[in-house]
Simulated scan of single mutants.
Amino acid sequence: METITTLLSQQHHDCDKLFAQTEASVATTQWERATTDFDRFLAAMEQHFTREEQILFPQVENHMGHTGGPTAVMRMEHEQMRQIFTEMAACITHSDQEQYLGLAETLLILMQQHNAKEEQILYPMSDNLLSHQFPALLEQLHQPGNKV
């Protein structure tokens, strides 16, 4: 049976592949390809963040009765990553390989720590709290481009 953990963890892996692909394009100074790869990576990350922030997190918060705790931390980390995305986009625009690769290192560490917290704590907790809503919730989480 598909769960929140399996679905959203797979999205993490998909985003990780796009991240690595973009980094490879930048490392070989293929700037046109890097632009396309980064756009795909950024779109996948934003879609994933949107699914969490507009679908999953509100459901968890509603069930818990507050907006603090793990979802607040995840939102804060999303914002930190978005700031790095902005800087990385500028590096690609200016063909700044060294700065991009430095930011990529920082982002990789942040994503690894963030994803571990979600995959080991938040998603399993969500599976337990929201199991009665699985069919409808999983359907929403599957919707492409779902800006609720």
Rank of each mutant, 00 (worst) to 15 (best):
L8Y: 01
F19P: 01
F19H: 00
Q21K: 14
T22N: 04
E23P: 01
A24G: 05
S25W: 00
S25G: 00
V26G: 05
V26R: 06
T28C: 10
Q30P: 03
W31T: 06
W31L: 05
W31E: 04
A34H: 04
A34E: 06
D39W: 00
F41D: 01
L42C: 05
A44Q: 05
A44M: 00
A44I: 02
A44L: 03
M45Y: 00
M45K: 00
Q47Y: 05
Q47M: 09
E52M: 04
E53V: 03
Q54G: 01
E61I: 13
N62E: 13
N62G: 15
H66S: 14
H66Q: 12
H66I: 04
H66K: 10
T67V: 07
G69S: 10
G69T: 11
P70I: 11
T71K: 01
T71I: 06
V73C: 01
R75L: 13
R75D: 11
M76D: 07
E79I: 06
M81Y: 00
R82W: 06
I84G: 05
I84T: 12
M88Y: 04
M88R: 05
I92A: 10
S95E: 14
Q97S: 12
Q99L: 14
Q99C: 09
E105W: 00
E105V: 10
T106K: 13
T106V: 15
T106A: 08
L110R: 10
Q112R: 15
Q113V: 15
N115C: 07
K117F: 07
I121K: 08
L122Y: 01
D127N: 08
L129W: 04
L130A: 11
L130V: 10
Q133D: 09
L137G: 04
L137M: 09
L138P: 12
Q140G: 02
L141Y: 01
L141I: 06
L141V: 03
H142S: 06
H142E: 10
H142C: 06
Q143R: 11
V148E: 07
